[in-house]
């Protein structure tokens, strides 16, 4: 029973962070929200009992967040000229 409540809570948080990542004005805020979404997906996978998927999601969340931040930095540098 507690597991169901935890799962519903995590899915609700995932929905909130996903929608706010879509509609955020600032791109950096969008990236951070996407990172939070990825971390909540890790917790959801752990709740559903698949640590392998959770591990992959955690690692890929870190890598993709780094790539997004680097790409955003490069984009800003190009637009400032």
């Amino acid at each position: 029973m507690l597991g169901i409540f935890l799962l519903v809570f995590l899915l609700f948080l995932m929905m909130t962070t996903g929608i706010s990542a879509l509609f955020a004005r600032d791109l950096l805020a969008s990236i951070i929200m996407f990172s939070a979404f990825s971390f909540l997906a890790v917790l959801t996978s752990l709740t559903l009992g698949s640590p392998d998927v959770a591990f992959t999601e955690a690692v890929i969340g870190v890598v993709s967040t780094t790539f997004f931040v680097v790409a955003l930095e490069r984009m800003k540098r190009g637009s400032s000229k």
């Binding site: 640590p51 392998d52 959770a54 591990f55 992959t56 690692v59 890929i60 870190v62 890598v63 780094t66």
Partner: peptide
């Protein structure tokens, strides 16, 4: 245990990327 080639490669790459950052 959980893990494998893909996750190990990503972890090793994170070490290099962090150093570059």
């Amino acid at each position: 245990s959980p893990g494998g080639g893909f996750q190990a490669g990503a972890l090793l790459a994170i070490a290099v990327v962090l150093s570059r950052l």
